[in-house]
Simulated assay, not measured.
Amino acid sequence: MNEKRMHAKKWQTTFFLIIIIVVTYLSTSITNFNLIDGMLTIPAAIGWMFSNLLITQDSIAKMPQILEKLGETIFMSIAATTLAAVVSLFLALMGSKTTKVNQFFSVIARFIASFSRNIPVVAWSLILLISFGQNSMTGFLALFVATVGFLTRAFIESVDEANQSSVEALTATGATYFHIVSKAVIPQSLPQMLSWILFMIETNIRSATLVGILTGTGIGYMFDLYYKNMNYNVVALITFTIVIAVIVIELLSNKIRKVIL
Protein backbone atom coordinates (compact mmCIF):
# COMPACT_ATOMS: atom_id res chain seq x y z
CA MET A 1 0.00 0.00 0.00
CA ASN A 2 2.82 2.38 0.91
CA GLU A 3 4.64 1.53 -2.32
CA LYS A 4 1.55 2.42 -4.35
CA ARG A 5 1.27 5.77 -2.56
CA MET A 6 4.93 6.54 -3.12
CA HIS A 7 4.60 5.55 -6.77
CA ALA A 8 1.52 7.80 -7.15
CA LYS A 9 3.34 10.74 -5.51
CA LYS A 10 6.28 10.31 -7.88
CA TRP A 11 3.95 10.42 -10.87
CA GLN A 12 2.19 13.51 -9.47
CA THR A 13 5.54 15.24 -8.91
CA THR A 14 6.68 14.36 -12.42
CA PHE A 15 3.38 15.57 -13.89
CA PHE A 16 3.60 18.93 -12.11
CA LEU A 17 7.23 19.39 -13.16
CA ILE A 18 6.25 18.78 -16.78
CA ILE A 19 3.45 21.36 -16.45
CA ILE A 20 5.88 23.92 -14.99
CA ILE A 21 8.37 23.32 -17.81
CA VAL A 22 5.65 23.64 -20.49
CA VAL A 23 4.23 26.83 -18.93
CA THR A 24 7.73 28.33 -18.65
CA TYR A 25 8.47 27.51 -22.28
CA LEU A 26 5.19 29.03 -23.45
CA SER A 27 5.78 32.14 -21.34
CA THR A 28 9.26 32.70 -22.79
CA SER A 29 7.93 32.12 -26.32
CA ILE A 30 5.03 34.57 -25.93
CA THR A 31 7.22 37.28 -24.37
CA ASN A 32 10.16 36.63 -26.73
CA PHE A 33 12.45 36.23 -23.74
CA ASN A 34 15.82 34.65 -24.40
CA LEU A 35 17.67 33.49 -21.30
CA ILE A 36 21.06 33.29 -23.05
CA ASP A 37 20.80 36.84 -24.43
CA GLY A 38 19.72 38.04 -20.99
CA MET A 39 22.71 36.41 -19.31
CA LEU A 40 25.10 37.90 -21.89
CA THR A 41 23.90 41.44 -21.11
CA ILE A 42 24.75 41.14 -17.39
CA PRO A 43 28.48 42.06 -17.74
CA ALA A 44 27.60 45.14 -19.80
CA ALA A 45 24.95 46.17 -17.28
CA ILE A 46 27.37 45.79 -14.37
CA GLY A 47 29.98 47.79 -16.27
CA TRP A 48 27.46 50.58 -16.90
CA MET A 49 26.55 50.68 -13.21
CA PHE A 50 30.18 51.04 -12.10
CA SER A 51 30.77 53.70 -14.76
CA ASN A 52 27.69 55.86 -14.13
CA LEU A 53 26.36 55.19 -10.64
CA LEU A 54 29.18 56.97 -8.82
CA ILE A 55 28.76 59.14 -5.73
CA THR A 56 30.60 62.40 -6.35
CA GLN A 57 31.24 65.54 -4.33
CA ASP A 58 28.48 67.35 -6.22
CA SER A 59 25.97 64.62 -5.44
CA ILE A 60 26.91 64.65 -1.73
CA ALA A 61 25.88 68.32 -1.67
CA LYS A 62 22.31 67.10 -2.24
CA MET A 63 22.40 65.00 0.93
CA PRO A 64 20.32 67.41 3.10
CA GLN A 65 17.49 67.33 0.55
CA ILE A 66 17.77 63.56 0.23
CA LEU A 67 17.59 63.06 4.00
CA GLU A 68 14.60 65.38 4.20
CA LYS A 69 12.70 63.41 1.57
CA LEU A 70 13.81 60.11 3.08
CA GLY A 71 12.50 61.23 6.48
CA GLU A 72 9.21 62.21 4.86
CA THR A 73 8.94 58.74 3.31
CA ILE A 74 9.78 56.94 6.56
CA PHE A 75 7.34 58.96 8.67
CA MET A 76 4.60 58.57 6.08
CA SER A 77 5.13 54.79 6.13
CA ILE A 78 5.05 54.67 9.93
CA ALA A 79 1.92 56.83 10.10
CA ALA A 80 0.11 54.76 7.47
CA THR A 81 1.06 51.52 9.21
CA THR A 82 0.09 52.58 12.74
CA LEU A 83 -3.25 54.02 11.67
CA ALA A 84 -3.94 50.92 9.58
CA ALA A 85 -3.07 48.78 12.61
CA VAL A 86 -5.80 50.48 14.69
CA VAL A 87 -8.40 49.93 11.97
CA SER A 88 -7.19 46.36 11.40
CA LEU A 89 -7.53 45.55 15.09
CA PHE A 90 -11.24 46.40 15.07
CA LEU A 91 -11.76 44.52 11.81
CA ALA A 92 -9.86 41.51 13.18
CA LEU A 93 -11.99 41.42 16.33
CA MET A 94 -15.11 41.43 14.16
CA GLY A 95 -13.70 38.85 11.74
CA SER A 96 -12.16 36.40 14.21
CA LYS A 97 -14.10 33.28 15.16
CA THR A 98 -13.15 33.88 18.80
CA THR A 99 -14.35 37.47 19.14
CA LYS A 100 -16.84 38.01 16.32
CA VAL A 101 -20.05 39.82 17.27
CA ASN A 102 -22.13 38.09 14.62
CA GLN A 103 -21.65 36.34 11.29
CA PHE A 104 -22.62 39.39 9.21
CA PHE A 105 -19.88 41.63 10.61
CA SER A 106 -17.41 38.75 10.40
CA VAL A 107 -18.07 38.32 6.67
CA ILE A 108 -17.82 42.08 6.07
CA ALA A 109 -14.49 42.32 7.93
CA ARG A 110 -13.01 39.38 6.05
CA PHE A 111 -14.25 40.76 2.73
CA ILE A 112 -12.62 44.16 3.39
CA ALA A 113 -9.36 42.43 4.31
CA SER A 114 -9.42 40.19 1.24
CA PHE A 115 -10.37 43.00 -1.15
CA SER A 116 -7.74 45.49 -0.02
CA ARG A 117 -5.02 42.83 0.34
CA ASN A 118 -5.43 41.31 -3.12
CA ILE A 119 -4.97 44.64 -4.90
CA PRO A 120 -1.24 45.58 -5.00
CA VAL A 121 -0.13 48.85 -3.44
CA VAL A 122 0.98 50.07 -6.89
CA ALA A 123 -2.56 49.51 -8.22
CA TRP A 124 -4.00 51.37 -5.21
CA SER A 125 -1.63 54.24 -5.97
CA LEU A 126 -2.88 54.47 -9.55
CA ILE A 127 -6.53 54.20 -8.49
CA LEU A 128 -6.22 56.89 -5.82
CA LEU A 129 -4.07 59.06 -8.09
CA ILE A 130 -7.09 59.64 -10.30
CA SER A 131 -9.14 61.00 -7.39
CA PHE A 132 -6.57 62.78 -5.21
CA GLY A 133 -3.84 63.73 -7.69
CA GLN A 134 -0.09 63.75 -7.06
CA ASN A 135 0.33 64.58 -3.38
CA SER A 136 1.37 63.02 -0.10
CA MET A 137 -2.24 62.12 0.77
CA THR A 138 -2.41 59.77 -2.21
CA GLY A 139 0.75 57.95 -1.15
CA PHE A 140 -0.44 57.77 2.45
CA LEU A 141 -3.83 56.33 1.48
CA ALA A 142 -2.31 53.78 -0.89
CA LEU A 143 -0.05 52.44 1.87
CA PHE A 144 -2.88 52.63 4.40
CA VAL A 145 -5.42 50.66 2.35
CA ALA A 146 -2.96 47.94 1.36
CA THR A 147 -1.74 47.64 4.96
CA VAL A 148 -5.27 47.32 6.36
CA GLY A 149 -5.86 44.23 4.25
CA PHE A 150 -2.62 42.54 5.24
CA LEU A 151 -2.75 43.38 8.95
CA THR A 152 -6.42 42.45 9.29
CA ARG A 153 -5.68 38.99 7.96
CA ALA A 154 -2.61 38.65 10.21
CA PHE A 155 -4.47 39.93 13.28
CA ILE A 156 -7.37 37.54 12.70
CA GLU A 157 -4.95 34.61 12.72
CA SER A 158 -3.27 35.96 15.88
CA VAL A 159 -6.61 36.30 17.68
CA ASP A 160 -7.75 32.84 16.56
CA GLU A 161 -4.54 31.36 18.00
CA ALA A 162 -5.24 32.85 21.45
CA ASN A 163 -5.79 30.38 24.30
CA GLN A 164 -9.51 29.60 24.47
CA SER A 165 -9.47 28.53 28.13
CA SER A 166 -9.07 32.08 29.43
CA VAL A 167 -11.84 33.29 27.10
CA GLU A 168 -14.15 30.51 28.28
CA ALA A 169 -13.31 31.22 31.93
CA LEU A 170 -14.21 34.90 31.62
CA THR A 171 -17.36 34.04 29.67
CA ALA A 172 -18.43 31.64 32.43
CA THR A 173 -18.06 34.39 35.05
CA GLY A 174 -20.39 36.65 33.07
CA ALA A 175 -17.68 39.06 31.86
CA THR A 176 -18.65 41.57 29.18
CA TYR A 177 -17.38 41.43 25.62
CA PHE A 178 -15.05 44.37 26.32
CA HIS A 179 -13.49 42.65 29.32
CA ILE A 180 -13.00 39.38 27.44
CA VAL A 181 -11.21 41.19 24.63
CA SER A 182 -9.10 43.47 26.84
CA LYS A 183 -8.20 40.90 29.51
CA ALA A 184 -7.92 37.62 27.60
CA VAL A 185 -7.56 38.14 23.86
CA ILE A 186 -5.43 41.28 23.41
CA PRO A 187 -2.74 40.42 26.02
CA GLN A 188 -2.12 37.06 24.35
CA SER A 189 -2.18 38.39 20.78
CA LEU A 190 -0.34 41.68 21.35
CA PRO A 191 3.28 40.44 20.93
CA GLN A 192 2.44 38.78 17.62
CA MET A 193 0.49 41.84 16.48
CA LEU A 194 3.41 44.15 17.29
CA SER A 195 5.68 41.87 15.29
CA TRP A 196 3.37 42.12 12.28
CA ILE A 197 3.23 45.92 12.64
CA LEU A 198 7.03 46.13 12.63
CA PHE A 199 7.15 43.89 9.57
CA MET A 200 4.68 46.13 7.74
CA ILE A 201 6.65 49.27 8.62
CA GLU A 202 9.70 47.69 6.96
CA THR A 203 7.64 46.63 3.94
CA ASN A 204 5.93 50.01 3.58
CA ILE A 205 9.21 51.90 3.65
CA ARG A 206 10.34 49.81 0.68
CA SER A 207 6.98 50.21 -1.07
CA ALA A 208 6.84 53.95 -0.34
CA THR A 209 9.75 54.55 -2.72
CA LEU A 210 7.81 53.11 -5.64
CA VAL A 211 4.59 54.77 -4.46
CA GLY A 212 6.44 58.09 -4.31
CA ILE A 213 7.45 57.76 -7.97
CA LEU A 214 3.79 57.40 -8.93
CA THR A 215 2.35 60.00 -6.54
CA GLY A 216 5.16 62.57 -6.72
CA THR A 217 6.09 62.44 -3.05
CA GLY A 218 9.00 61.56 -0.80
CA ILE A 219 12.27 59.97 -1.79
CA GLY A 220 10.63 58.19 -4.72
CA TYR A 221 9.78 61.49 -6.39
CA MET A 222 13.34 62.73 -5.90
CA PHE A 223 14.71 59.50 -7.38
CA ASP A 224 12.41 59.80 -10.39
CA LEU A 225 13.30 63.47 -10.89
CA TYR A 226 17.06 62.95 -11.05
CA TYR A 227 16.72 59.72 -13.01
CA LYS A 228 14.73 61.47 -15.74
CA ASN A 229 17.34 64.25 -15.79
CA MET A 230 20.01 61.53 -16.18
CA ASN A 231 21.85 62.75 -13.10
CA TYR A 232 22.99 59.26 -12.18
CA ASN A 233 25.43 60.42 -9.50
CA VAL A 234 22.57 61.72 -7.36
CA VAL A 235 20.52 58.63 -8.24
CA ALA A 236 23.34 56.47 -6.89
CA LEU A 237 23.43 58.45 -3.63
CA ILE A 238 19.65 58.24 -3.25
CA THR A 239 19.73 54.47 -3.85
CA PHE A 240 22.57 54.01 -1.36
CA THR A 241 20.72 56.10 1.25
CA ILE A 242 17.52 54.07 0.82
CA VAL A 243 19.43 50.77 1.18
CA ILE A 244 21.18 51.93 4.35
CA ALA A 245 17.92 53.22 5.84
CA VAL A 246 16.11 49.94 5.14
CA ILE A 247 18.95 47.89 6.65
CA VAL A 248 19.06 50.03 9.81
CA ILE A 249 15.29 49.86 10.27
CA GLU A 250 15.30 46.10 9.71
CA LEU A 251 18.03 45.63 12.34
CA LEU A 252 16.10 47.75 14.84
CA SER A 253 12.92 45.85 14.05
CA ASN A 254 14.62 42.49 14.60
CA LYS A 255 15.94 43.62 17.98
CA ILE A 256 12.50 44.80 19.05
CA ARG A 257 10.97 41.48 17.93
CA LYS A 258 13.45 39.55 20.07
CA VAL A 259 12.35 41.58 23.09
CA ILE A 260 8.58 41.30 22.61
CA LEU A 261 8.40 37.69 21.40
Rank of each mutant, 00 (worst) to 15 (best):
S158F: 03
D160F: 03
A162M: 08
A175Q: 12
I180N: 11
Q164A: 13
A146N: 15
E157T: 07
F150M: 13
H179T: 13
G149Y: 09
T147Q: 02
T147F: 06
T173Q: 14
A172K: 02
A169H: 07
R153L: 04
T152D: 06
Q164T: 15
I156F: 06
S158C: 05
V159A: 05
D160H: 01
I156G: 05
A169S: 13
N163W: 02
T176R: 11
T173A: 07
S158H: 09
A175M: 09
T147N: 02
T147A: 13
G174L: 10
V159G: 01
S166T: 10
A172S: 15
Y177A: 08
I180W: 05
A146T: 14
V167T: 06
A146R: 05
H179D: 10
A172D: 07
H179N: 12
E157V: 03
T173G: 13
T173L: 12
D160K: 00
R153G: 04
A172L: 08
A154K: 00
T147G: 03
S166C: 04
D160S: 03
I180Q: 11
G174Q: 08
A172C: 06
A154M: 09
Q164K: 13
T147P: 03
T171Y: 10
F178Q: 13
G149H: 05
S166F: 12
E168H: 09
A172F: 03
A175T: 06
T176K: 09
T176V: 12
N163M: 04
G174E: 09
A169W: 09
I180A: 10
F155M: 10
F150R: 01
T171R: 13
N163L: 08
S158N: 13
A175S: 13
L151Q: 03
A175W: 06
T173H: 05
A169I: 07
A162D: 00
G149W: 06
E161F: 00
S165F: 08
A175R: 02
E157R: 00
Q164F: 14
E157Y: 01
A169E: 09
Y177C: 07
T171V: 03
V148A: 07
V148N: 12
L170I: 08
A169K: 07
Q164L: 10
A175V: 04
S166A: 13
D160P: 03
T171E: 14
I180H: 05
T176A: 12
A154P: 00
E168D: 13
Y177F: 09
G149I: 04
S166L: 12
A146P: 00
I156W: 01
S166K: 15
